[in-house]
């Protein structure tokens, strides 16, 4: 076999390992699904009526707010799942198993590739469950099949970017606890954007941040695809953010992985 073939085989082996981990550690996936679902129920049933009334155009109700909220909740699910990646990377590196892999003649990239692909599968699983529940409680998207596909693509792109970022965060953590805390800022970011309420009502400084941080264009793109609101330049900006975060995080992760080896 060629070295590329080995890389693919080894990555597939590592992916199988990650899938097993997801099966054996269902409480992690449960937590990753539970948090966005609880948040969604809270926002819809506790704040929903009031927040709906404050939406642009006025006179909205709980139903209008569900539609506004769900794209943001899907994004929030991605940030939570990324946290799971950091935890599972740190679980690996703080135990001896990674050193074992390193002393074997296997593709160096395969371990990280396996983690990233495994997390991607886990994230998409979480999103599917959260989406199903949102449909059950009254989310009414207007997307065509093509738009659904595009929305799935955007979610995959942002998940891919945040998972690589979490891989790097997991690698620089000395313990599983640190790894679980470091990506926490990611779960806050959707709140400081257009995921839960429009940015118009925020104070100037915060509003500027909210309009320019990466989560807002992603949220707006998803909202546009699923509900037909205007997308404008959001899609392009969102994909550019995803590409930049993916690339930088990949380089950071690769560097940390090699540096960690030399200790």
């Amino acid at each position: 076999m060629t070295s590329l073939a080995y890389t693919l085989t080894d990555s597939a082996t590592m992916l199988r390992r990650q899938i097993r981990h997801i099966q054996r550690y269902p409480s992690l996936t449960g937590m990753l699904i539970g948090l966005p679902v609880i948040l969604m129920l809270l926002f819809v049933y506790v704040f929903g009526e009031t927040l709906g009334a404050g939406l642009p155009g006025g006179g909205g109700d709980r139903g209008a707010y569900i539609n506004y909220l769900v794209p943001g909740i899907l994004l929030f699910s991605v940030t939570g799942a990324a946290q799971g990646t950091a935890i599972s990377i740190a679980m690996d590196t703080t135990e001896g198993i990674v050193d074992r892999f390193r002393t074997m003649a296997i593709s160096r990239a395969s371990l990280l590739t396996g983690h990233v692909l495994g997390s991607l599968v886990q994230t998409m699983l979480c999103i599917a469950v959260v989406l199903a529940i949102s449909l059950a409680i009254g989310f009414r998207p207007t997307a065509t099949p093509i738009e659904w596909l595009a929305a799935a693509g955007v979610l995959t792109a942002i998940a891919f970017a945040l998972i690589w970022l979490s891989v790097a965060l997991g690698l620089v953590s000395d313990s599983v606890e640190t790894a679980s805390n470091l990506p926490m800022f990611l779960t806050i970011l959707p709140f400081l954007g257009s995921a839960f309420v429009p940015t118009d009502t925020m104070p100037t400084g915060l509003r500027w941040f909210a309009d320019h941080q990466p989560f807002t264009p992603v949220t707006e793109t998803l909202r546009g695809l699923l509900l037909g609101s205007g997308i404008g330049s959001s899609a392009l900006i969102a994909l550019a953010w995803c590409a930049v975060i993916s690339l930088l995080s990949y380089l950071w992760a690769k560097h940390s992985f090699h540096k960690r080896a030399a200790r």
Binding site: T9, R17, R24, Y25, G96, I97, D99, T103, M104, I106
Partner: peptide, 30 residues
């Protein structure tokens, strides 16, 4: 790497996998 085997001081087994799956993982990587 292709010629050696290493058993370190700290256990290098995958705790979430069974013994058989751990061995299977090694067989696949080889």
């Amino acid at each position: 790497r292709a010629a050696i085997g290493v058993t370190g001081q700290f256990s290098a087994v995958d705790n979430l996998l069974t013994g058989e799956e751990n061995l299977r993982l090694m067989a696949d990587l080889h």
